[in-house]
């Protein structure tokens, strides 16, 4: 959802979203194939098996930092919206701490509980977004999406890359996949879920363009919220921003939890801790602190999420590390035939 708060906006942004979804799908498919190679290990264990102990450490550190960093950015972004829109007088830190505590608790309970909570919450989030989008189709002007591809392919690709960067989150499944039930179809589940998320994103962006037009959307920091504002069903179901708030809280909370969990798995592996939960609290505190001190103001955060910064940052995690592992694996495989089986 943060994708809706940054980047260029023009009427073709939904095409960019589709592009991003496709890129994310391919990307995650590759990741899933690679994860299949690990045979029940995390990426770190796999690296060690390949004999690259030092790079395992490095990757472990990168994943830890990445997890905590993204968690803190998400915390901040989320809290900023709360303060801007709903709670003017409340200090930012309250939302950061409460959400981080909840995420800490859930991450502490382990992947099984995380999955169960997600199973419960996801239908609500997705159902809520779809309902909002559908409700927004009865106002607005479908002609808003024209002209198609007005400014050529460049802005679309740029937008696609921006949004793809947010799908980069899937890279943390490198750490989580081994924990999943083996009956889950590893190769299809990740790309399919990314594609589903991408479709939802396309639908959402489309509704925004359709509903409030890209020129109003472009002025707004939270265009989706503006769309929600406009909703009026039979002049009774109006002013539903509160429900959007609920959706927003739930989805951000899940995201933060996953990243904290991934960071703790990574750290636990790094220091060969028997119980990864020992590092969870320090990591959470770190994320909370980072969320507060990383950015002076919201505009810095928005600047950070621009493609020139964020997409490059994500590419390192999302492309460089898998590529490195793939090369390493290919080299080792050639050296020791039969290992691939």
């Amino acid at each position: 959802m943060p994708v809706l708060t940054v980047g260029d906006r023009y009427q073709d942004v939904w095409i960019a979203a589709a592009l991003a979804a496709a890129m994310g799908g391919i990307n995650s498919f590759l990741l899933a194939i690679m994860a299949g190679l690990y045979r029940g290990q995390t990426v770190l264990g796999f690296l060690e098996e390949l004999g690259a102990g030092i790079s395992a450490k490095v990757v472990g550190v990168v994943f830890t930092v990445f997890g905590v960093h993204v968690a803190s950015i998400t915390l901040r972004d989320f809290a900023e919206l709360m303060v801007t829109y709903f709670y003017e007088e409340t200090p930012l830190i309250v939302f950061i701490i409460v959400t981080a505590l909840l995420a800490y608790w859930l991450a502490y309970m382990g992947i099984e509980v995380i999955v169960r909570v997600a199973q419960f919450v996801f239908p609500l989030i997705i159902g809520g977004i779809i309902l909002i989008n559908l409700a927004s189709l009865n106002f607005g002007d479908p002609n808003n999406i024209f002209p198609l591809i007005e400014k050529g392919a460049a802005p679309i690709i740029r937008g696609g890359v921006t949004q793809w960067a947010f799908f980069g989150d899937v890279v943390i499944w490198f750490l989580l996949l081994p924990h999943l039930n083996s009956s889950v179809k590893k190769y299809t589940f990740l790309p399919l879920s990314v594609l589903a998320a991408g479709l939802l994103l396309v639908f959402t962006v489309f509704s925004i363009i359709w509903g409030i037009g890209n020129r109003v959307a472009v002025m707004r920091i939270y265009p989706y919220l503006s769309l929600v504002e406009e909703i009026s069903v039979v002049e009774f179901i109006e002013r539903v921003e509160g429900f959007f708030l609920l959706i927003w809280v739930a989805s951000n909370f899940l995201k933060i939890t996953l990243f904290l969990y991934a960071a703790s798995v990574s750290t636990g592996h790094l220091f060969r801790l028997g119980d990864r939960r020992a590092v969870l609290l320090p990591l959470t505190i770190l994320a909370v602190n980072l969320a507060v001190i990383l950015f002076d103001n919201y505009l810095q955060l928005r600047y950070f999420l621009r493609p020139e910064v964020y997409a490059v940052y994500m590419s390192i995690i999302q492309l460089a590390i898998p590529a490195y592992i793939a090369v390493l694996w290919l080299v080792r495989k050639r050296r020791t035939p039969g290992m691939a089986e």
């Binding site: 709360m82 709903f86 709670y87 409340t90 309250v94 939302f95 409460v98 959400t99 909840l102 608790w105 859930l106 309970m109 509980v113 169960r116 909570v117 419960f120 919450v121 509160g242 708030l245 609920l246 809280v249 739930a250 909370f253």
Partner: peptide
């Protein structure tokens, strides 16, 4: 204490508890 955010936080805590 925190309005709808508080209610949602409470519900999420409840959900975590129920799921565990």
């Amino acid at each position: 204490a925190l309005g709808l955010f508080g209610v949602m936080a409470g519900l999420l805590a409840l959900l975590i508890h129920l799921c565990s």
